[in-house]
């Protein structure tokens, strides 16, 4: 584990140097992140001009939820988004070859080799909004609340990773030109709102089939002190199971790798 952490830090360092090489538009990214979260808060505010509750959530609750959504999205954009579409490229052009000769788990390598470190701004902004929401709510989370929050947002991240990874792994058989990330995006977008907002079959789907809503709702509720040990444990279990499954699937898919010939 310690070794993987060292490798991850090395990836981070190399990406940092790479970004500096182009002096990436740090400022414009910062601005667009601020602007994005500003608009999101405004939208929530507009909803609450009409009502004081949204699916059982108050304004401050929804702010916390929005913060969680932003944090999670920041993490995804930092570590997953730069890598997942690349997998296709690796398979199509055969650059997976070098990755497979390295003595590290190849799934780990393809998942975390490229990092967009400035996306961590979104994580910070998200945490800021969470803080702001908590102040509005006049709720001071206990250490246990925070621990539950960390556990549930962690398992949300792992679950998203595993699902996305499995989706991308199918490219070993179906080598497409475009990537499948947009499927993931539209699915994740539903996680912006309280699941209680959705009605009928949509709610059932978003809770049990594609648990996008649950992915952000649980961490937010944990932080607000409304956690539940059983559901948290279940979510950790599910995330662990899917992570294992995605790894098995990856290993299986490697057998079908044909390595674009040179």
């Amino acid at each position: 584990m310690g070794r993987y952490w060292r490798i991850f830090r090395e990836f981070f360092r190399a990406c940092f140097v790479e970004e500096l090489e182009y002096r990436s538009e740090f400022l414009s990214n910062l601005l667009s992140s601020f602007f994005g979260i500003g608009i999101a808060i405004l939208t929530v505010k507009i909803f609450f001009y009409q009502t004081d509750q949204l699916g059982g959530w108050t304004y401050a609750d929804v702010l916390v939820l929005l913060g969680v959504f932003n944090t999670l999205r920041g993490l995804i954009d930092f570590a997953l988004r730069p890598n997942m579409p690349r997998l296709l490229e690796h398979i199509r052009k055969g650059t997976l070859d070098y990755i497979l000769t390295k003595p590290v788990d190849s799934m780990f390598y393809v998942s975390f080799r490229h990092l967009m470190f400035w996306r961590l701004i979104d994580v910070l902004l998200g945490l800021g909004v969470i803080g702001y929401g908590l102040v509005q709510q006049h709720y001071m989370p206990s250490l246990l609340d925070v621990a539950m929050f960390v556990i549930s947002i962690g398992s949300s991240f792992v679950l998203i990773y595993a699902l996305w990874m499995m989706l991308m792994t199918t490219s070993f058989w179906v080598i497409r030109i475009d990537d499948l990330s947009f499927i993931f995006d539209s699915f994740f977008e539903t996680a912006r709102f309280p699941s209680g907002m959705y009605r009928g079959w949509l709610r059932i789907i978003l809770t049990y089939v594609l648990p996008a809503a649950v992915i952000t709702n649980m961490p937010a509720l944990s932080l607000l002190g409304r956690w539940n040990v059983v559901t948290t444990a279940v979510s950790v279990g599910i995330a662990g199971f899917f992570l294992w499954l995605s790894h098995r699937f990856w290993r299986f898919a490697l057998r079908s790798y044909t390595s674009a010939s040179s």
Partner: peptide, 27 residues
């Protein structure tokens, strides 16, 4: 493995950076 047609060096940064990444990977 060395392939004349494919590169393992990181394109935009000096080769030394690739060496350092390999140092971590190979422990």
């Amino acid at each position: 493995l060395v392939m004349g047609q494919k590169s393992q060096l990181i394109w935009d940064i000096p080769p030394m950076e690739t060496f350092l990444v390999n140092k971590a990977i190979y422990d």
